[in-house]
Design a protein around this nucleic acid. Sequence first.
DNA 1: CATATTTTGTACTTATAGGTAAAGAAAGAG
DNA 2: CTCTTTCTTTACCTATAAGTACAAAATATG
Lengths: 192, 192
Amino acid sequence: MGRPKQFDPDVAVGKAMDVFWRKGYAATTPQDLVDELGIGKGSLYNAFGSKHALFERSLERYRDTQSAALVELLDQPGPVRPLLRSALELLIETDLGPAGRRGCFAVNTATELGGRDDASTELVRRMFERTEGAFKAALERGRRTGEFAPDRDADAAASLLLAALVGMRVIARAQGGRERLGRIVDAALDAL
Amino acid sequence: MGRPKQFDPDVAVGKAMDVFWRKGYAATTPQDLVDELGIGKGSLYNAFGSKHALFERSLERYRDTQSAALVELLDQPGPVRPLLRSALELLIETDLGPAGRRGCFAVNTATELGGRDDASTELVRRMFERTEGAFKAALERGRRTGEFAPDRDADAAASLLLAALVGMRVIARAQGGRERLGRIVDAALDAL
DNA sequence: CATATTTTGTACTTATAGGTAAAGAAAGAG
DNA sequence: CTCTTTCTTTACCTATAAGTACAAAATATG
């Protein structure tokens, strides 16, 4: 009971995620959020408590959508190499696409708050581990089907893929061109 | 003529670099700078003009010291593979060492200001290009001496090394363990 | 329909960001 | 030893960050 909300909190979190993703935590002001979410400041704080709490929810949303989508893509059946290629190429298109070079929200958060905000750092650490785990599972699958040499260390290769992925997205944010990003994908796949 | 400065601006820029490196641009306040540099606010603004100008000088200092040191290391003569290994392992030790997990100042800046601050973005872009160029030169040298297969694409491998390097430092900031970072180095060198 | 409950809008509030102004101190030039 | 120039200190300034308080509005229940 009581007065119902005039807005959908889930939608609002999605919009907040966009702002934090583009501008980062410190550079995002309550006014930015009010403008972007289209609700009053009172509603904002009543619904989410604090800027930091809303940031955490935004990061969780990112994990549950963007990041999870990548992991799901990698978990698909079929030949592994084209799967890996399309996953990485999708990121290139996303980073160079109309949404602009905002990079990866998790990566941005790692470099802004890593070691300085425990909740965020932990969330990002887990996301990285999960991505690496998905790479490892895909590689082991490919090894069983004979796609990759059986003597290669899947752990090391998965860590390299994670690093390459993370690096790519930083480089995209620093105006790295499509050729350079494409070369990274090619070389990373060649390394397997 | 005129009253001489009570502090060494070069030393001050070095201290400013440390603060910006740890906290990022937006989260660093004039008060932080005053505290860290040990000079008055008047002197600060008299000497450097603005927070942003001091930030740019800090970034240039980073490029001229830290980043240049890496490039120089790679340009040393002798077998290439151990050179690459020690360069990457040095970064691991730095990131896990007493200075703490502050990552790479250039990478942090790319993800905080990339596409939103032209001067910084451009500076970082150039640093990445320069690092990639140093990798490429090393790889070509190694190819000539027979250390690497002559058919491998040095451009692609250099881009991968850059991405791996950048990724490593982000992962370090997100509490990535030494084993994970070591695996990245191993796999990256195996890929050559 | 009176009431308890939740949301909303508006108006505060405190602290700080980012910087400026002005007066006094420390040099070298003449 | 005064004058000019540059630096330092202290005080000040305006705008905004991040949030709180409170009255009015909208429901769901009894």
